[in-house]
Design a protein around this nucleic acid. Structure first.
Lengths: 167, 167
DNA sequence: TATCGTATGTAATATCATAACATGTCAAGT
DNA sequence: ACTTGACATGTTATGATATTACATACGATA
């Protein structure tokens, strides 16, 4: 129910979706995963994740930093980068390199390889199911003897809405 | 025959390969493609491509810029970025976002979606055959009504050599 | 040769990211 | 309770990457 959040542009999917559980699920998951690896979901880290969940779109590190600073956390870049890197490690936040941005994962429950579809016209970003892409990557890399640990899969193009507007 | 070029670290493939035709083929292709789109393969552009072909590895824009400047071209960042962007448009150079770098394509003949395998230990970069990956991406995006124009597919992990060294 | 689109060069600046170091916090062991 | 050591935060400073804006030059073509 937050396909068009008040404080943001387009969300992380092209179609409406039920977002009501995203935040709570993800925060719970964050606690679990942190504990699993003997780390803590500290206030900054938690808040950083909340910020991404609230806006529900891709945000630059400095943008997140600004929000953290407003909440009384540190004002310097490392504050944001450290929190974000931590969340990326957990797999709950993805880094979208083409946009120099971060976004909370929209499928925190499933282990998955994220694939982002970025509209070059309206800048919407969607996270696509990419299980098949992952398998293809595995196959291609295994043939070369390469062992994959992380992937960044991003596509630039036109989202459904803009595809009509600009053929 | 240039798997380990004198002026560079690891090349763009994990295994040795016949590189003797890469440069010439690609330069010829660059001429064709430029003409096709009513543009010109000007000296800076040509030289930028040669630089990437010679070193045969991923290079940062500023690194390319330095080499261009040595050859009498402009010394400011836009000089490099413009030439590189042009070559990326042509599809003869790929941008590797995780490395903030550019690399000449190793399969200039085929239309293809590039997929890079980046070793986090020795920093070698290989361009993997990714036809299957491309198909999977198409399928995933078509299901959402998204029209792909460009992709960045990058995997981080361990190359064959480092995979043994660090299990 | 006048003109227009393309391409290059430069200066200035914006944006993104990290290194290095000081301080603070928390839990385990004594 | 006190010490210790690992983890976490905060700050300063700087590095690295990328773009905007504008002036100049080139090249095809009418």
């Amino acid at each position: 129910m937050c396909a068009t959040p008040s404080d943001a542009g387009p969300g992380l999917a092209f179609a409406d979706h039920d977002h009501s559980h995203c935040a709570q699920d993800t925060l719970a998951r964050a606690d679990e995963l942190s504990a699993e690896r003997g780390a803590r979901l500290t206030p900054v880290r938690r808040r950083a994740l909340e910020i991404l969940l609230e806006s529900h779109r891709a945000m630059g590190a400095y943008e997140v930093l600004e929000r953290l600073a407003e909440d009384g956390f540190g004002k310097q870049p490392p504050v944001a980068y450290r929190a974000l890197d931590f969340l990326v490690e957990l797999g709950l936040v993805h880094r979208i390199r083409r946009l120099n941005a971060f976004a909370a994962c929209t499928h925190p429950g499933e282990a998955h390889v994220p694939a982002f579809l970025i509209c070059r016209r309206c800048e919407a970003v969607a996270e696509a199911p990419a299980e098949a892409v992952r398998r293809a990557m595995e196959a291609a890399s295994a043939a070369l003897g390469f062992r994959i640990e992380r992937t960044n899969i991003e596509a630039l193009g036109l989202c459904p809405a803009c595809s009509g507007a600009e053929p």
